[in-house]
């Protein structure tokens, strides 16, 4: 009933702006959504597991006698390696289908976003294929990471000059 009323409003709208707005509201009604709770739960346990593996790897490398800082670096390398391997074996997208944010948020998601276009675009050549496209998804992350930390660093530097921090 509600939907029928919406359709009427769409077709009887006076101008395009109103029609488009009504139509978008109607579309929202008829478009099915992922179960939010299920997605959130999946993201929780998958993301949690990836972080726990990271924690385990850190302890593993510390048990080899590395200090904590270096152990964390080796942990990052290991997670990135595993993620790229899973991407190459076409397993990462299968995990991501269930995990959602659970596989996007950890560093493994970043590694996946580097490896996936590199593999996909290899046919377009070393320079314009792999070389350019490897940054299609990860490039913005690096760029805005550098920009934001630079700006915040500048503020920190200026505040330091003023003797505030």
């Amino acid at each position: 009933m509600e939907k029928e009323k919406q359709v009427k409003e769409v077709l009887s709208a006076k101008n395009k702006t109103e029609r488009d707005q009504k139509y978008n509201e109607y579309v929202k009604q008829v478009t099915p959504k992922h179960s939010c709770l299920k997605n959130t739960c999946n993201a929780f346990w998958t993301g949690g597991i990836i972080c726990t593996i990271g924690q385990g790897l850190t302890y593993l490398y510390m048990s080899f006698g590395l200090d904590k800082e270096n152990a964390v670096l080796y942990q990052i390398i290991s997670l990135v390696f595993l993620s790229v391997l899973f991407t190459g074996l076409n397993l990462y997208p299968r995990i991501a289908k269930v995990a959602g944010a659970g596989s996007v948020v950890p560093i493994t998601g970043f590694a996946n976003s580097v490896a996936a276009p590199a593999i996909e675009y290899q046919k377009e050549g070393q320079v314009f294929g792999i070389g350019c496209k490897i940054f299609t998804i990860a490039g913005p992350v690096i760029l805005y990471g550098i920009v934001s930390s630079w700006i915040l660093g500048l503020i920190y530097y200026v505040l330091g000059l003023l003797g505030i921090v």
Binding site: C41, A43, F44, G48, P106
Partner: peptide, 17 residues
């Protein structure tokens, strides 16, 4: 590590949805 990492991912999932 599990709970904190999981919670961050869950929060982002809600944001994405």
């Amino acid at each position: 590590a599990f709970v904190v990492g999981g919670l961050i991912c869950a929060a982002v999932q809600i944001l994405m949805d």
